[in-house]
Amino acid sequence: MSWSWEYVPDEDHVIAGLPPVLVKDVEEKAAELVRAAEVLYQHGASYEGASPPGGTVVLADGMFDYQIVPRHERVYIRQVTSW
């Protein structure tokens, strides 16, 4: 398995109707979070601790909530808000 990110529960639920520029910014920042998580949790699949707390990223056009789950080697984007 290798690290990646995904929308949870699915793309339609999380980003439907949002401005394309915001979606692009979210996906770029999600890729950065994946690279950071990959370094912090190098042996993600065998990670035995509690998953780290979720977080919020503020962008120019909105914000998003995410959760890192080392055992899944995933960054889950749970909610995106536009302003």
Rank of each mutant, 00 (worst) to 15 (best):
E27V: 10
D25Y: 07
V69K: 11
P20R: 10
Q42W: 08
V21Q: 14
S46E: 15
A50G: 01
D61P: 01
A50Y: 05
V34F: 01
W5G: 00
P9L: 11
T81Y: 07
F64M: 13
V26N: 07
I15F: 02
M63Y: 04
K24S: 08
E28W: 01
S46T: 14
V69P: 04
E32C: 10
P20V: 13
P53Y: 10
Q67E: 09
V34K: 06
L59D: 13
A31D: 03
G54H: 00
G44N: 07
V34E: 02
H13C: 11
P20C: 12
Y41H: 12
H13P: 01
A31N: 05
I68K: 12
D65G: 05
G44Q: 03
A60I: 10
V69W: 04
V58T: 15
R78Q: 13
Q42G: 05
V57D: 13
G62E: 14
Y66N: 00
P53G: 04
V26I: 03
E32F: 01
D10M: 06
F64T: 13
F64I: 08
L40N: 09
E11D: 05
K24C: 03
V57W: 02
Q42P: 04
V21H: 11
F64Y: 09
P19A: 15
R35F: 06
Q79T: 09
Q42D: 02
I68M: 05
K29L: 10
I15N: 03
P70K: 00
Y76W: 13
D25Q: 15
W3S: 08
V34G: 09
S82Q: 13
A60S: 14
S46K: 12
D10Y: 06
W83D: 10
W83G: 04
S46A: 15
V8L: 13
V8G: 00
H72V: 05
K24I: 02
E32L: 09
V26W: 01
E11N: 08
Y41A: 07
A45C: 08
V34L: 09
